[in-house]
């Protein structure tokens, strides 16, 4: 197991370390079920949520995670970049360093921003990538893996990977940081990844993607019989840029609806990283069905982020 200082990519964690993080998250999940949902572990540590891009959900998830570990939490919403003559990433980072941040959770609209922050020498604290452009969102992949493992193995989850689990990730793979991080982590944990999307929303050259690519969601459901169907959010800016003709056509061909839902195998899970466009990539019946793990994903996100912050900051060497 290779310990890491920063969590920049889902590819940073090897199998043993990934399973260790998920196991720690199991423990955190127990804490979250208690009446007093708080551990003293990170008392005296400062965690900064540095958000260059609005994401209330991810920010409050990290905020709750840090607070339940008794860390001091600062939310820093920075607008702009050196392009727009706003505050530059460098100035912001150096400011946080001067204030003594032990960990910086960064969400940024630029792919690679977390890497730059970690390798620039501007800042000494641990860096957690909370989503960088269209690159990665590793804690999302961890919480998705946690959710799958919990549904599949229940209370016997600890120590297990996702070997042989067939996951169909459907939607805007090209621009999805959720898809990239899930690809890497699911491969590490032994799962089999299928991407389903219109050809315009797959990379032109997927040579380095260890996944099977499909254009038809119907064929994947009927032939591949996936254990998990993960629907990706369609961003509004794609709808006007000729990636597909119309929202209606997208929903018809690539949306998860009640007709497709009933053709899934009995044990199949329906996942979505949220926020959902109900009626576009997923209909209400699917989103609210017992197969749907959407709300579990939200709850598990806190446990997984607690596990990440705890493991990176406590100096724990397992």
């Amino acid at each position: 197991m290779t310990h890491i200082k920063n969590l920049l990519s889902a590819g940073d964690v090897d199998r043993d370390f990934a399973i260790h993080l998920l196991d720690v998250a199991e423990g955190m999940s127990d804490v979250n079920d208690r009446e007093i949902k708080k551990l003293p572990t990170l008392r005296g540590k400062t965690v900064v949520n540095l958000f260059f891009e609005d994401s209330t959900r991810t920010r409050i998830s990290f905020e709750l995670a840090a607070k339940r570990l008794s860390a001091d939490v600062i939310n820093f919403s920075a607008k702009g970049s050196s392009v727009s003559k706003g505050e530059s990433l460098k100035d912001t980072a150096q400011t946080l360093e001067a204030m003594g941040a032990d960990a910086v959770v960064i969400r940024h609209h630029a792919s690679g921003a977390a890497n730059v922050l970690a390798h620039s020498g501007w800042i000494q604290g641990a860096i957690v990538n909370a989503g960088d452009g269209t690159h990665e969102h590793p804690t999302q992949a961890l919480l998705d893996a946690f959710t799958m493992r919990k549904r599949i193995h229940g209370n016997a989850s600890s120590g297990k990977g996702l070997d042989g689990v067939k996951v169909a990730i459907t939607g805007d793979v090209l621009h999805s940081r959720v898809a990239r991080s899930n690809l890497l982590l699911l491969n590490t944990l032994g799962a089999e990844v299928h991407f389903v999307a219109p050809p315009t929303l797959l990379p032109a050259n997927p040579a380095n993607f260890n996944a099977t690519l499909h254009y038809s969601l119907d064929q994947v459901i009927d032939i591949e019989k996936p254990d998990v169907v993960m629907m990706l959010r369609v961003q509004t800016e794609r709808m006007t840029a000729s990636y597909f003709p119309s929202e209606r056509e997208y929903a018809r061909i690539w949306g998860l609806n009640s007709d497709r839902l009933v053709r899934l195998k009995d044990t199949a899970l329906v996942m979505h990283p949220g926020p959902m466009n109900r009626g576009l990539e997923i209909d209400a019946v699917s989103a609210d069905s017992p197969r749907s793990t959407v709300l579990e994903q939200v709850a598990n996100g806190v446990s997984v982020r607690m596990a990440v912050l705890f493991t990176l900051l406590s100096g724990e060497r397992a």
């Binding site: 792919s111 690679g112 960088d132 452009g133 269209t134 690159h135 990665e136 090209l174 621009h175 940081r177 990239r180 990379p203 032109a204 050259n205 997927p206 040579a207 380095n208 993607f209």
Partner: peptide, 10 residues
């Protein structure tokens, strides 16, 4: 645009 850009999300 190639295999590397697909990975890096650029």
């Amino acid at each position: 645009e190639g295999a590397v850009s697909a990975e890096l999300g650029l």
